[in-house]
Structures are given as C-alpha cells and as structure tokens.
Simulated scan of single mutants.
Amino acid sequence: MSERAGDAATQAGDAEQARRREVLDRIARGLVYSESEAAFQAPQRRTDLVFEYNHTPPSHEAERRALLEAIFGSVGARTVLTPPFHAGFGSNTHLGDDFFGNANLSFVDDVEIRIGDGVMIAPNVTLTTTGHPVHPARRVDFARFSEPITIEDRVWIGSNAVVLPGVRIGYGSVIGAGSVVSRDVPPMVVAVGVPCRVVREITEADRATRAGG
C-alpha cells in the first residue's frame, strides 16, 4: 500500500470512528437514530445464543448458566429465566441476584436494562428501552429513540405488563398484570393500569395478607 493510500485509509477510519461516536452520543441523549446508523452495534447482539438457550433442556443446568453469562452484560447468582425469552441484544441487560423471569419475557435492550436483586417478573412481560417517532416520515429506516430502564431490588411485575423507555421502578413495588408503565414508579407502592398509576402504598399490614391490590 502506498503512503497516500495508507493516509486515505487512516482518514476514512477516523471519519468512521467519529461517525460512530456521534451516533452513540445521540443514542445516549435519547435522540432519534436509524437502523443503518446503528448497524455497527450488530456484533453486540447475542441472538444466536438466545436461540440456543431457548432450545437447551432444563436438565442441562450448567450449560444454561454458561449461556446466560455469555448472553447478558452481567448475571447475578441463583438466576432463573424460563424459556423462551427474547432479547434484542442481551449484552445491554444486567440481572441481579435471585432474579426470576417467567416465560416469554422480552428485553428490547437497545440501551441498558438494569434489574436489581430479588426481582420477579411474570409471563409475557415486555421491557422496552426503545420507541419510535409518531410522524411516519420520521420512522424511515426503522428510526427510533432509546432510554434506559431501571428496576430496583425486590420489584414484582405482573403478567402481560409493558415497561416503556426511560422508566425506573422503585424498591419493592408491585406492578399489576396488564399494566403499561410509562413513567417512574416510586418505591414500596402498588401500581396498576393503562397508563400505570399508583393505587396505594405497601405497608406493614401487607405482611399478613395475600393480595397485592
């Protein structure tokens, strides 16, 4: 390679790195970006490993644990994740200790999902960090925006709930089945509905009852 060609290649590489940094900055700020712009993130996707996990026999506990550690950004101790589950990346999701996720849990983790210790998630729940612009002209090339989700320790999320981009669910709270969580939920409350709203606090009296509603 000639010196001139080498310089051109270096400049092209620098330009590509600058473009990637600009896209990552937009993603971090919750601004709109397109599928083509974010294509360089494809190697971070763990979809083949997710497929493998979903087809691994329950009795192969060591193999399933190794797959979880390869799929997720971090995995705590005593993790239970009932297949099938789905993840856009996997590598952007972090699971705490004593996590229980039931069947058909979907992680739309274009950016980080952080789940604390002792969290329980019922079947058919979606955690999505990503949404799309309302105007169709802005959805060309699957244009989208992404904001991280945080689920603090000891949260319980009921069946068929959807947690939307940017939401934080506080310590110990319960999200009722079928809820759509579009805003932050404070610690130690029961919240239900579409949109999800706080209906009451969790108190010492709940130690003697079964119901959460």
Rank of each mutant, 00 (worst) to 15 (best):
V155P: 01
V108K: 00
N160W: 08
F99Q: 08
N102Q: 03
Y171T: 06
L127C: 11
F145C: 10
F99D: 04
I169V: 05
V134P: 12
D117V: 12
A137L: 06
V162C: 07
D153H: 02
R114H: 04
A137K: 10
I115T: 07
G170N: 00
I121Y: 01
N124R: 13
V162A: 08
R154D: 13
D141S: 01
F142T: 03
V111R: 02
I149P: 01
V162S: 07
P136C: 14
F100Q: 07
V174N: 13
N124M: 13
V119H: 13
T150E: 05
T150G: 00
W156Q: 15
G158Y: 01
P136D: 15
R139S: 04
A137C: 02
S159C: 14
G116S: 12
N104A: 06
W156K: 12
D117P: 08
V155A: 06
T129A: 11
R168L: 08
P123C: 05
G131S: 15
V119M: 13
F145T: 11
V119Y: 11
G166S: 15
G118R: 08
D109T: 05
G166K: 11
N124Y: 14
P165E: 07
T128N: 08
A137H: 09
I175D: 06
I151D: 15
P123H: 05
V162F: 09
N124P: 14
H135S: 14
A137M: 10
Y171M: 08
R139V: 02
L105H: 08
V163K: 02
F107D: 03
D97I: 07
V111A: 04
P165F: 09
W156N: 15
A177F: 05
A122W: 03
S159L: 12
R144I: 03
V119T: 10
G170W: 00
R144P: 02
V119F: 07
Y171G: 08
G96S: 04
R168D: 11
I151G: 11
A103E: 07
L105K: 07
P148N: 08
V119W: 09
E112Q: 14
G172Y: 14
R154L: 09
D110M: 09
D110K: 00
A122V: 11
G116N: 08
V155K: 05
R168V: 04
E152I: 03
F99I: 06
T150D: 03
T129I: 14
R114K: 01
I157R: 07
A103Q: 08
P123I: 04
I157Q: 05
N160G: 12
I175H: 03
V125L: 12
V167S: 14
F142G: 00
D153R: 00
L127F: 12
V134S: 13
E112W: 10
S159Y: 13
V162W: 04
R139G: 00
S173R: 03
V163I: 14
E152T: 01
D109N: 03
S146K: 09
P133C: 11
P123N: 03
I175N: 05
D141Q: 02
P165W: 12
